[in-house]
Each structure stands twice: as C-alpha cells, then as structure tokens.
C-alpha cells in the first residue's frame, strides 16, 4: 500500500510537470482559452482509457504500472480545478461570456475518449464464454471507487 502511495507520488509529479511544460510552451487562444489545459485534459482522458484496457489482469501492464500511470501520471497531467475556474472567469466577463460557454462545452464534450475504450466482447462459445469471464474480471479490477 505504501508502495502504491509512492508510485502515485512519483507518477503525479511527472504528470503535473508535463502539464506545466505544456503551459509554458502552448499559448492561450485569444480571449484566454487555456489551450494547454485543454490539451493536457484531453490527452489524459484518452490515455487513461487506453491504459485501463491494457492494465486488466494478465494484461501488458501490471498493477504497479497501472497505479503509476493512471492514478499517478494521468491524474497529475489532467486537472479539474483549472478547467472550472477558467470557465467561471470567462463567464464572469461579459466580453468573454460566449467564449466561456464554448470553453465549457468543448471540455465537456471532448472528454469522452474513454467511452470507446472497451470493444464489445464477441460471444463465441466455448472461447466466447472465456472471453466474457475475462471481461467481467476486468470490470471488477476497474471498480470505480478503487481508483483515483
């Protein structure tokens, strides 16, 4: 458990540092749309979906790697607080209100990458049943409250 904590600490640090590098390199759009945060969040949302599919039991990445990369790096790379705060600020400024609404909607709508992450499991018996059982185990492994 302590090992997991250390892995999240390291992974989170790396993710946050990557986000800071993006902030230093990528300029905001006119009106202040925080393009760097947008890129960080979209990349992390997509990659956490891909990584979660690779980290099922018997998958490419083990449980330590899962904690390091998903809870740690992707969690550190993405941020919710900057996203809502920037939206609030844009909405509060009459000149940027439209952009703020667009910003909110764009974040909102584009973060659905993980939705497509799990392909439907073909039901080909007897092999199909085995695949189905594996899929259920994957669901157990990824139980929602287990992972942040």
């Amino acid at each position: 458990m302590l090992k997991d904590g250390i892995l999240v600490f390291i992974g989170g640090g790396i993710g946050a540092a990557l986000r800071e590098l993006l902030m230093l390199v990528v300029a905001n759009l006119p009106g202040g749309f925080p393009m760097s945060i947008f890129i960080a969040n979209m990349t992390a949302a997509l990659l956490i979906g891909v990584l979660s599919s690779l980290t099922i039991p018997g998958g490419v990445i083990g449980s330590g790697g899962k904690v390091l990369l998903t809870t740690g790096t992707m969690g550190g790379l993405s941020t919710f607080s900057s996203f809502v705060w920037a939206t609030d600020q844009m909405l509060a400024n009459p000149a940027h209100r439209l952009l703020g609404a667009e910003h909110g909607c764009r974040f909102f709508a584009c973060g659905v990458g993980p939705l497509a992450r799990r392909p439907p499991v073909p039901d080909l018996s007897p092999c199909g049943n085995r695949l189905k059982r594996q899929s259920n185990r994957a669901d157990d492994f990824l139980s929602i409250n287990d992972r942040h």
Binding site: G12, G13, G15, A16, R19, E20, M23, N41, A44, A45, L47, I48, G49, S52, T70, T71, M74, G75, G76, L77, S78, T79, F80, S81, S82, F83, F107, G111, V112, G113, P114, L115, R117, R118, D139, L142, I144, R147, H148
Partner: peptide, 27 residues
C-alpha cells in the same frame, strides 16, 4: 506554481472523472 498548478492540479483530475463516467455508462 507550487500550490495552484502543482498541489491543486495534481489533487483534482479530469481523466478519472471521464473514466468514471465511461465506466458508469458501460455498466
């Protein structure tokens, strides 16, 4: 840099929020 971008940025997460949504949807 330390508190806002670092601590709060690392504390909150957009990716898990989206993944949770996907998991709820898929379940």
């Amino acid at each position: 840099a330390l508190v806002l971008t670092g601590v709060l940025g690392g504390y909150t997460t957009f990716s898990t929020y989206q993944l949770d949504t996907a998991n709820l949807y898929n379940s």
